[in-house]
Nucleic acid binder design. Structure first.
Length: 885
RNA sequence: AGGCACGUAGCUCAGUGGGAGAGCACUACCUUGACACGGUAGGGGUCGGCGGUUCAAUCCCGCCCGUGCCUACCA
């Protein structure tokens, strides 16, 4: 066995080695036939086009921590991985490839294009899967799914047909968000609103039969080509005489009516609004109310169509410039104001979207949403942290029908066929060959595909084999938990809730844990366009996956965004290295140790042993508690401080004399404790630091019940009972050591210098405690002559410090000068004086004494007494020191 | 416009109705046989501002200022 660990931890080879080992051994695999209680998570499927970013890193690290923890606590864990087919994004990628070859998809035709996408996918899609593995993600990779897989596609058809049959899917011709570049409709959610600087153009529309103008304001002057009315508020006196009259639409010379509608805000602009029912959502509603004409002036690429008269064939923004210029030359441009407003952009390509009339497929979501709301209200699904519940309700109560059809090729083609003969629609699970209305075989399949989120919404059950009744579904549905960022709460979580309840008759997950967004150090959202992205894999290369994971875990406090700083990652890299070196120390001292031949049972444990074992128990307890409550940062902090500040700083140091001493029994007892605590600590840390813990665990001496630490049991608390009294005595010894070190440090006593110390104890209990730690005090405080007693004889020139019931006296002779000690005492006294003042004031407040709970009172009185006593001792010492000057 | 967060040490962030914490950075000393990615000691904050509730507020409530995010049809 190799116990010669290198001096510094080198993550690179270690990570690769263990990940391969786990995967080959099947440690990640979930067994649906297992009798163990289940724990399941479906991964939020990243886009097949995606590359790992910080959001993925955080999201998957948290899931992995949960999954590894649950495996270790005896659960059969299914973490279902996969990617989604990202319809628009993927099609864009492949279209770009084609463009580089001077082709476009229409030349290839639909089938060849789709084939080309599949080729792209198998060659360069899904890189993110390997990137997730580099983080240590313990998904059941054998089950990896893709939303375009055959099984998942079958689920999509099943759902479509059933929703259609239930009347929840329908077709309608209305305004939708149209991306003129992607040439497809988008759902409301897929439009991003960004405040942009623009203008408000004030146009003059001549009133027919008068010499008056009606001034209207618009942010999109080119739409005037499609105006079919001007609206004013019915109670606006300025215009009441014009209602019912006609204005002459400039440039196109069309007479359009002045109508009255409550929608108009009298205060805004001129109080008169041009109405373009075919190109504006509000105008659309007004158009319907007033039975106006809907004139579409754009084609699907955003180019003015034949309805635009002289502007026909112009691109929308060129047309805007031209129209403004023409209006101006005709004296019909009143003024141009600067104006900022939220412009809708395509979330995939950032092209400004156009409200566009077209016939699309919709899901009537209101009835589904009602059930999804109920499930959260009744806590069948719990959303954490709870403030997100409100956001969820808000969205669900105001939900609009979901436009699910996309005019692209890559995706699940809508299973609907139009009959050439009777014009009716046939919707079918199998490809239709005959019209279900007239029997005709002259059918054309709908060319549109479904929104990618439609298939994502089925993910929690489609990945488990639905619509088949599989063992996996029986065992693992509903899933235990969903871990995700709030940015897809509506896109995904809400829709999974609706679909899960509708088709599985049960919620898709019992808990939803919403985590923060990772931002850069300035708090900006990371984005390629801002150039502020930090590549997680670069971080992994530089600091190691474990250090990165620990950082994410430590930062993942509920309800707050994460501003990632590389300094902090460096700090946790040091932590991993610290663990590594503490382990090296242990291994060096465990070479002759056999865990099988040594047990804690029946050993007479030292105070130090009992202290570290009791601290370990409490760290384990807190870690479990925090993990169960998704308090990832608490887990990190508990384990960090136990590892570094208790195990390394104290126990490792305390153990040295016993390990290096002559007494074989003492040595073996200490080895047993050292082994027990380190081995347990590695298991405690494993969910966060999977790689380094496995590497160390594997070289520990002896055999353990499982082959890998992954499958080992998670520590829960006490390894063996410890005596509270012994632990308390150890704490006193530690306080004394700290007090001596404090004096040494303050008075600049060289660290190597061995000194004399007198410990004057107030009572025999303190004396017993101190005596029990005599050897520790000698070694850790570098003391060569230690006197312990009650009412000891005090050397004349001493430095005085107080540690609870123990007065720490350090003879000055030859060490330090009187002035320095005087200064130190004054500083120390100033601190104590603050305490005395604070508690004196507090306790002299009659109302406080009358109202505060007795335990608070008692505690504060104790604190005051202790402070006063300490002050008295220091004061006396100061007097004595001053007589020596 | 509405909603939701946030404002704590130089920086990044925890935290709690009862004397303010961590990491990094900083200062001093130290190559002590696991570790200089280290050790020991230390300095540093009227917990955004103003009011209120309370014996007690950084924490609860109100208002204000600042920052960020989400939702929304003001042309």
């Amino acid at each position: 066995m190799n116990t010669d660990l290198p001096k510094g931890y080198d993550p690179a080879q270690v990570e690769q080695k263990w990940f391969r080992c786990w995967e080959e051994r099947g440690d990640f695999h979930a067994d649906e036939k297992s009798p163990k209680p289940h724990y399941s998570i479906v991964i939020p499927p990243p886009n097949v086009t995606g590359v790992l970013h910080m959001g993925h890193a955080l999201n998957n690290t948290l899931q992995d921590i949960l999954c590894r923890w649950k495996r270790m606590t005896g659960h059969e864990v299914l973490w279902m991985p996969g990617t989604d087919h990202a319809g628009i994004a993927t099609q864009n990628v492949v279209e770009k490839q084609l463009a580089a070859e001077g082709k476009d998809r229409h030349e290839l035709g639909r089938e060849a294009f789709i084939e080309r996408v599949w080729t792209w996918r198998s060659e360069s899609g899904g890189q993110i899967i390997n990137q997730l593995k580099r983080l240590g993600a313990s998904c059941d990779w054998e089950r990896e799914r893709f939303t375009m897989d055959e099984g998942l596609s079958k689920a999509v058809r099943e759902v479509f047909v059933r929703l259609y049959d239930d009347g929840l899917i329908y077709r309608d011709n209305r305004l939708i968000n149209w991306c003129p570049r992607c040439h497809t409709a988008l759902s409301d959610l897929e439009v991003e609103h960004d405040d942009k600087k623009g203008n408000l153009w004030h146009l003059r529309y001549p009133v027919v039969g008068t010499d008056r103008y009606l001034v209207v304001a618009t942010t999109r002057p080119e739409t005037m080509l499609g105006d079919t009315a001007v609206a004013v508020h019915p109670e606006d006196e300025r215009y009441s005489d014009l209602i019912g009259k006609m204005v002459l639409l400039p440039l196109v010379n069309r007479e359009i009516p002045v109508i009255a509608d409550e929608y108009v805000d009298k205060e805004f602009g001129s109080g008169a609004v041009k109405i373009t029912p075919a190109h504006d959502f509000n105008d659309f509603e007004i158009g319907k109310r007033h039975d106006l004409e809907f004139i579409n002036v754009l084609d699907e690429s955003g180019i003015i169509n034949e309805n635009g008269g002289p502007y026909s064939g112009m691109e929308r923004y060129s047309a805007r410039v031209q129209i403004v210029a023409d209006l101006e030359s005709q004296g019909l441009l009143e003024k141009i104001d600067d104006y900022a407003n939220a412009v809708g952009e395509c979330y995939r390509c950032k092209t400004v979207i156009e409200p566009y009339m077209s016939k699309q497929w919709y899901v009537a979501v209101k009835p589904l949403a009602a059930e999804a709301i109920k499930a959260v209200e009744t806590k069948e699904t719990v959303i954490l942290p709870p403030q997100w519940e409100k956001t969820y309700y808000e969205w669900m109560y105001n939900i609009q029908d979901w436009c699910i059809s996309r005019q692209i090729w890559w995706g699940h083609r809508i299973p609907a066929w139009f009959c050439d003969d009777c014009g009716e629609i046939t919707v079918s699970r199998e490809d239709a060959t005959a019209c279900s209305h007239c029997g005709s075989s002259n059918l054309q399949q709908e060319t549109d595909v479904l929104d990618t989120w439609f298939s994502s919404a089925l993910w929690p059950f489609s990945t488990m084999g639905w619509p088949e009744e599989t063992e996996a579904l029986k065992k693992f549905y509903p899933t235990s938990c969903l871990v995700t960022g709030f940015d897809i709460l509506f896109f995904w979580v809400a829709r999974m809730m609706m679909m899960g309840i509708k088709f599985m008759d049960d919620v898709p997950f019992k808990e939803v844990y919403i985590h923060a967004l990772v931002r850069d150090a300035q708090g900006q959202k990371m984005s390629k366009s801002k150039g502020n992205v930090i590549d997680p894999l670069t971080i992994v290369d530089e600091y190691g996956a474990d250090a990165f994971r620990f950082t994410l875990c430590a930062f993942a406090a509920m309800g707050r965004d994460i501003k990632l700083s590389t300094e902090r990652i460096g700090g946790y890299r040091n932590f991993v290295n610290k663990l590594w070196n503490a382990s090296r120390f242990a291994l060096m001292n465990l070479e002759d140790f056999d865990p099988a031949a040594n047990s804690l049972d029946g050993l007479e444990l030292s105070h130090a042993d009992q202290w570290i074992l009791s601290r370990f128990a409490s760290a384990a307890e807190e870690a479990n508690k925090a993990l169960g409550a998704y308090k990832f940062n608490d887990v990190a902090s508990v384990l960090y401080s136990f590892t570094w500040h208790e195990f390394c700083d104290w126990y490792v140091e305390l153990s040295k004399e016993d390990l290096y001493g002559e007494d074989a029994a003492v040595r073996s007892r200490t080895q047993t404790v050292l082994y027990t605590v380190l081995e347990g600590l590695l298991r405690l840390l494993h969910p966060i630091l999977p790689f380094v813990t496995e590497e160390i665990w594997q070289v520990l001496p002896g055999e353990r019940p499982t082959i890998t630490i992954m499958q080992a049991e998670y520590p829960v608390g006490d390894v063996i009972p410890t005596s509270a009294a012994a632990v308390a005595e150890m704490e006193i010894v530690m306080d004394v050591i700290r007090a001596i070190r404090n004096v040494r440090g303050e008075l600049d006593v060289p660290p190597g210098k061995r000194i004399q110390v007198v410990l004057d104890c107030k009572n025999s209990a303190a004396q017993v405690a101190v005596e029990s730690g005599r050897s520790h005090i000698l070694s850790l405080a570098r003391v060569e002559n230690l006197q312990v007693g009650i009412d000891c004889e005090r050397p004349k020139q001493v430095s005085t410090q107080v540690a609870g019931d123990v007065e720490v006296l350090i003879p000055l002779a030859g060490l330090i000068n009187v002035e320095e000690e005087e200064a130190r005492l004054l500083k120390e006294m100033a601190k104590v004086q603050k305490d005395v003042d604070f508690f004196t004031k507090k306790l002299s407040n009659e109302k406080f004494v009358a109202n505060a709970p007795p335990q608070v009172l008692e505690k504060d009185r104790g604190k005051l007494a202790a402070a006063e006593e300490k002050k008295a001792i220091l004061e006396l010492s100061l007097l004595k020191i001053r007589t020596l000057k």
